[in-house]
Design a protein around this nucleic acid. Sequence first.
DNA 1: GCTTGACCTGGAGTGCACTCCAGGTTGTTG
DNA 2: CAACAACCTGGAGTGCACTCCAGGTCAAGC
Lengths: 126, 126
Amino acid sequence: MTTELLTPAEMADLVGVSVDTLRYYERERLISGVGRADNGHRRYDADDVAWIRVLRCLRDTGMTIDQLRHYCDLGEQGVTTKPERLAMLRDHRAKVEARRAEIDRALELIDHKIDIYLNEAAGDAP
Amino acid sequence: MTTELLTPAEMADLVGVSVDTLRYYERERLISGVGRADNGHRRYDADDVAWIRVLRCLRDTGMTIDQLRHYCDLGEQGVTTKPERLAMLRDHRAKVEARRAEIDRALELIDHKIDIYLNEAAGDAP
DNA sequence: GCTTGACCTGGAGTGCACTCCAGGTTGTTG
DNA sequence: CAACAACCTGGAGTGCACTCCAGGTCAAGC
């Protein structure tokens, strides 16, 4: 079976980025080995979808293009780089968790600020 | 009492931004009414510290400079704009919470990816 | 009295991650 | 067969939030 190859537009739609961004990622070597139809147009397979989803997840949580490129380069270099890739993921995970803690603190401050507005409305001080 | 006025460098240090950023915020009207020493140098008071902390909290959680300026403009316009300011905070709060949810989902995916690395190491499939 | 460092102003420059454009090919549709 | 949409490439442009710079003032220390 031909397992559902996607056009650029379909992929863009599916993962929530623009077609331009998809091409940009490829230029930056964050995506490689994308297949082509007879007419030279890109065709993405299930593996591409899975990887681009991970890629977006990492990008969305602040991993830079440079870091992602490094991660990809390691992947290309084969199995011996697994420990380093794992380390990158763990390192990033720690950053994301720190970020979440920051967000939790921010939410508290925002709630506090909202409370002040509500209390002012009740007492109506100058 | 003179209640501890801070120099730009001290303020920058305290809230974790650069002196340049502090001036940039002032140019963008995100900070106003900053006092001056006799020599024309800025002197920040406790209110400034409190506001800049809130400002940083909002910026750190993705509120744009434009939005912050609007929020400040509303503040300058007086008490009648309180409902709108409150609405802005609530709106932002919702976005931050959505962001946290996104981060939680990302953490799950990253953990899943890490698990795959660990399991591959155990079984060592091609 | 001269250097040093923190500050001042207005304006220019930077880095990142896209995003858009020109100029061209292909393939379907009325 | 004309027009339209979706794709291709290489390269230029954009927006945001800073960040840096030139040229100058002022106070304290050596």
